[in-house]
Amino acid sequence: MSDVMAPKTPQWWKKSDVKKTAILWVICTAVIGFGGVELHVRNMVRPASETMSGVINLMRIFTWAAAPVAGLVGAMCLTVLTSGRHYGDNPPPDADHEIRNSPRTTAVWVSLSAVLCLFALVVGLVVFQRDSQAILDKSALQVNVTGQQWVWNFDYANGARSQDLYLPVDKPVVFHVTSVDVMHSFWIVQMGIKVNANPGYITETAVTPNKIGVFDIRCAELCGILHSYMQTKVHVLSQADYDAWFAAQGRVEAKS
């Protein structure tokens, strides 16, 4: 903070509380950045797509970016709290200054948050742009998703329909999502994609699964009594397994 400089007071950066804050700032930033990232990343699901890895990365970057600002606030609070407190029923004497503002501090603070904000925007928009491109991929597998109270139905190119989703690994998929009754939200948890299923409309989202395994699909929009149970699985198979499954489905369809 910039004071009016009285002759004997040291320059502002040499004042003891400023020094203390500076040290605490470094510590707080490190603790918040490290702790925040750990808290987020450790608890997030293991990614099953590039998109989800991107999300986890974003959380890491954002947390580290926000850490210095949060750290500064924390450091200043700690400094204040540790330099003299008054308890009691009557007020302490007034503080020994009457600083009412400091254009320099304000400017620094506002530019700092503006830079931070800009950074978050740029990083976010770049990732967003990449994700949105995927929807336009014409060569991708196309799956129609229909939500209804309280199940998911998946329709494939060959006319097959299933209630568990089957996908080949490493192949882009585009989902065309709709609903027959109320709003649902189609969420493949480990792939970090989600889009609402609206009656009367078709919405789109896209992903490329990059791991073989079984993952969760959950409905993420309150849709009535059994919303909690509107869950299903996605089976990501190797291309060969997928082809076999797909052919089998085609036959089932043809027979019936």
């Binding site: 903070m1 509380d17 600002v69 606030v73 200043m76 609070c77 400094t79 204040v80 709290l81 003299g84 407190r85 008054h86 009691g88 007020p91 302490p92 004497p93 007034d94 503080a95 200054h97 600083i99 400091s102 501090t105 304000t106 603070w109 506002v110 948050s113 503006a114 931070l116 904000c117 978050a120 925007l121 976010g124 928009l125 967003f128």
Partner: peptide, 28 residues
């Protein structure tokens, strides 16, 4: 997304005011 994130700037100003007032105060 842009407008939403811009709101953090004026909100940050409120933080500045509070922290700035605590700074070098006589805490009661």
């Amino acid at each position: 997304m842009i407008t939403t994130e811009l709101i953090s700037i004026p909100t940050g100003m409120l933080f500045l005011v509070l922290v700035g007032t605590l700074w070098r105060g006589r805490l009661w």
